[in-house]
Design a protein around this nucleic acid. Sequence first.
DNA 1: CCTGTCACGTA
DNA 2: CGTACGTGACAGGA
Length: 889
Amino acid sequence: MKRLLLLDGHSLAYRAFFALPAENFSTSTGQHTNAVYGFTSMLINVLRDTEPTHLGVAFDVSRQTFRTEEYAEYKAGRATTPNEFKGQVSLVKEVLDAMGVAHIELDGYEADDILATLTTQAVDQGFDEVLLCSGDRDALQLVGDKVTVLYPVKGVSELARMTPAAVEEKYGVPPERYSDLAALVGEKSDNLPGVPGVGPKTAAKWLTTYGDLTGLVASIDQIKGKAGESVRAHLDGVLRNRRLNQLLTDVPLELGPDDLVRADWNRDEVHRVFDGLEFKVLRDRLFATLGTSEPEAEGNVDVDGEVVAEGGAEKALASLTGRTGVHVLGTWARGTGDAAGIGLAGDDGRALYIDLTALTPDDEKPLAAWLADESKPKAMHDAKGPMHALDARGLTLRGLTSDTAIAAYIVRPDQRSYGFDDLLLRYCHIELPQAGDAASGQGMLDLGGTATAETDDVMARAAAVAKLATALDEAVAEVGGTELMADLEMPVVDVLAGMEKAGIAVDLDELQSLESDYDALVVQAQHDAWDAIGGEQVNLGSPKQLQTVLFETLGMPKTKKTKTGYTTDAEALADLYEKEPHPFLEALLRHRDSSKLRSTVAGLIKSVADDGRIHTTYQQTIAATGRLSSTDPNLQNIPIRTESGRRIRRVFVVGEGYECLMSADYSQIEMRVMAHLSGDEGLIHAFNEGEDLHRFVGSRVFGVEPDGVTPEMRAKVKAMSYGLAYGLSAFGLSKQLRISTAEAQRLMDGYFERFGGVRDYLRHVVDDARAVGYTETMMGRRRYLPDLASDNRQRRDMAERMALNAPIQGSAADIMKKAMLGVDEALRDGEYASRVLLQVHDELILEIAEGEREAVEKLVREQMGSAADLDVPLDVNVGTGASWQDAEH
DNA sequence: CCTGTCACGTA
DNA sequence: CGTACGTGACAGGA
């Protein structure tokens, strides 16, 4: 039995480089190893799964090949190889040398040509099987009875087995026609454009009809329709693509397939190389795969699982040691859920599974007590949802010292997604056993056999979350986030869970009547718009159709360009209306307004729960600055600016059994943060005197008495003050205020002259961020901004604006979170029935119980006002009323 | 059905 | 050529 495994080293390492974040894979000396790690991990897996007798890895040498000679644009436009990747290829080769794996490269040829040549030779020489592992789809043309391509589908852990049947199923053509298909469709990454308007489906249909590309060319005049015209116009390109995507099978190699027989590997060399790369777990996995009799002690991830029998909970819980990893089996959404089981794992690898659907009182009592015991430290991943599920079973969870999603967010707040399996691989270099396969090998969590069962999976996850939490504790400490985590983010989880569970009451009848009101306005506006253009029934919601009407039918002047044409946004339409007050524009703007409000209302109606309340979900790990976000529905963007929009706020009402809603919002919190951080004496003075900020700033900038500041002056200054916190330029200010750039520049100069502290602060904050690589909020929340060093000006400018804004927006977010904790705690301490329902960045909405209004107002003012110690006061406005709208005054 | 784009609501 | 979000509609590819 001869089985040859061939890998495209460059493409696989490159994939690994992007699949694994560089910052989590580097040695103590700073050498990045993510590409080496990912490639080696992939190699070990594929060796384990395929057990080849012969093995080789091909590399590209340079970009100069016969393909670039024929077509200079071949692979042009590719981003330059990142510096962090360069150098890792030679490390990959060191790994291969240590493992005794041959690697092959030849100037002027791509790795895939080498693979193609070896594959052809191996088949000719009677090999039983050839396996090609490549991230380049061109390799699919080689697939045959004895040749299978292993194509990485996502990340570094999953390979698709592309047999002839699989190729045909995916692309609709057999492997020998794949290159014809690719020539028609094009290959973006190689800069080979295909036929416009022709996708894989059309191409496959043609190739089936005409046999192959040659047949297609012979009958090319018979192809009907637009696609036919298109392919005739682009035939030269197609034929060129076909010449270029043909892999060479006659590369003059020094080694043949038989020379690739697996050689002995050098244990000492593996130790030396892997030591240098600081690969511990991977080394264990390698030794396990290569069949060593020497399993190394480190990286032991055995889990000893036990499904707790009836009546055994108390004793089992008592046996848990250290911080317990918790994983809940169940479902959750919109402030509620359902939990079926719970996995608990101590730090000694002992894990328990407790079925929650059939708990006897004898088990439930100790479990509930243990879960609620603050002194039993616990770790979970994304705990808020599971907490709802437990809550639905009457179980309260306390003592959470780590939520691994939040920990990862503190370490890198820009990621937006913190999947458990990814974090586990990144921070612990551990993989969970997948359903269906028993765990095996080092670096895999191993429950000793029945890894397919759901209970085992839950226990494995509980054990994994405990390990992950420990690894992340360290990572959090490295970014100085330990306190932020313990004192702010973790306690906030509880508060948010409470808010989500409570929800906010709405007047459903009123919502429905609003919907029909807005619907009538939409219909009327649509009618007026259609009338205004002679009855043509254009879809007013389609930017594309609007462009036709505005710029062709009506011949209006072109607006600002977008990627796909010209903008039809409200600002541009208003501009057009000034130049040309066409009734269509007026009706269109009305239609926009009304349909937006209608869909907002429709969304709210859909999300009213059975209890007559809307339960939003707060996301704590999304906004890179530290803010919360709200989804399903988003209650942080309910209209307020227009009267018709404010009607929507009237449907958010006080619930039964409560007296009123209370709104408490910070006044100008970001400006106050800026005053504090900059230490600017003028701004600090203004806030301390309790003056109208914009009037005060206006009087200084324009050199008049505060009473002499006109509304126009005040509006300009207000726009500028807020703009500064976002990195506004004179150009941007001029556009917003509809003044000349020169006048905008004079305004800004005047501002900075009077408020030099602000200017100095804004300058320093960017410089400092560039020097250390991150910005920091008042409570130590970091945001890393590598693009500050980018040589791309657009990216660098963007990063600079983020650096300007992140400490201001982020500090305000910190303060609000602190205030929420204070308010929540004070409400509990005072045993009030009133509760916090919503947070809208600088505003809290509370539901006030009968007779508690005055006391709660006092407590809210105290807690919000003292959430941070600034050089300026934190002013809080409080209002109450029967609806959100009424409370805001 | 999924994905990208546009548009627009909030702080 | 002003930050941070989420949602809905359309359009184009399947």
